[in-house]
Design a binder for these strands. Structure first.
Length: 327
DNA sequence: GTCCCGCGAG
DNA sequence: CTCGCGGGAC
């Protein structure tokens, strides 16, 4: 933790900016950015759609110009740091990603170095980000990148064939590495378009958002800056209005974490990564659990996914097998 | 409790 | 299509 964020020096609550992510932004100014939307389907001609998109683009780009966030992964076109950031940012907030991103690039500066890292070292470094399977996929994709000379291809099909890369991340690579005018639809972008062009509608499908993004992508001058701006604007809206993403057809409220298998998986990975192999009895003890069947099914899943392996029991006949991070 | 610059399996 | 998947911040 940087010293300026230490508990003692943290400002009193009343001194904190209203929008911590945009420190120079006042509530009054913020609210001017939140209004202005119009239902896309109410536009009946290309001229009207053109004008609406222009207004939208102007507002969003203006917001970034005045209050945009600037991240290190926005300063490069190298596919490795960009993929690294995109994968980390899948379900993890920017503030928490920043530190890990810098750490990873220091240790593993390119695809080639990531391709040869041991799983235990990788998981140890990943520790704290969550969704550990992302780390496995990242390494697998690094290994596969040798096919393209230790970089990533720019065509959608090849990108989608790589583990951990879906529609969103493939578009991110195409836009941010190769300046291609693709449809990059992630949560902040979705929020921005829903707020602006579907103000009073429930259950909006992504298929209806995509044409609007394509329309804008084709008109915009700098595709990278456009999507950075759209994400900044989406982050602003998250602080200003009830989450528009709840009106998306793909919205799903998340399940509780406390007491979930997810929590237990995370604790098992953490223990095996930081403390070495354990047998089932030791794991039960450490987890404070008495449900052996549940633990076994979680271990089976972790093994099937390639996180852990069963080590042969030691020569003493009664010893139970150890579980350790896969070699 | 809600969200986070999603992906993959079924 | 729906669901599981971490862990921290607010």
């Amino acid at each position: 933790m940087p010293p300026e964020q230490s508990l003692k020096q943290r400002p009193k609550k009343k001194d904190l900016p209203l929008f911590p992510i945009f420190p120079e932004l006042s509530a009054d100014e913020a609210s001017t950015y939140a209004s202005g939307g119009i239902a896309w389907d109410s536009l009946s001609s290309d001229a009207e759609r053109d004008a609406a998109i222009s207004h939208f683009m102007g507002t969003v780009l203006d917001f970034r110009h005045r209050h945009g966030r600037h991240f290190p992964w926005q300063q490069t076109r190298d596919p490795w740091p960009i993929l690294l950031s995109e994968v980390m940012l899948q379900q993890t907030t920017t503030a928490r990603v920043l530190e890990k991103y810098r750490l990873f690039l220091e240790i593993w500066p390119d695809f080639r170095s990531m391709a040869s890292v041991s799983l235990v070292d990788l998981l140890a470094a990943w520790s704290g980000l969550g969704y550990n399977r992302r780390a496995l996929a990242l390494r697998q994709t690094a290994i596969r990148s040798e096919e393209w000379g230790w970089t990533l291809p720019d065509d959608r099909e090849s990108l989608l064939s790589l583990p951990g890369i879906g529609a969103s991340t493939a578009a991110a690579i195409r836009c941010f590495c190769y300046d291609l005018r693709d449809i990059y639809l992630e949560t902040n972008v979705r929020r921005a378009v829903l707020h602006w062009f579907f103000p009073d509608e429930e259950g909006v499908k992504d298929k209806r958002i995509e044409p609007i993004l394509l329309y804008a992508a084709k008109r915009v001058d700098d595709i990278r800056q456009w999507y950075y701006a759209l994400m900044d604007y989406g982050v602003l809206l998250a602080r200003l209005v009830p989450n528009p993403n709840r009106r998306s057809s793909s919205y799903a409220r998340q399940t509780a974490f406390k007491g979930s298998d997810r929590e237990i998986r995370g604790r098992i990975i953490f223990m095996l990564t930081h403390q070495g192999p354990r047998d089932k009895v030791a794991l039960m003890e450490a987890l404070g659990s008495s449900d052996e069947a549940r633990l076994q099914s979680i271990l089976d899943a972790l093994q099937a996914e390639g996180f852990i392996e069963e080590r042969p029991a030691s020569m003493a006949a009664e010893n139970s097998p150890l579980y350790g991070v896969k070699k």
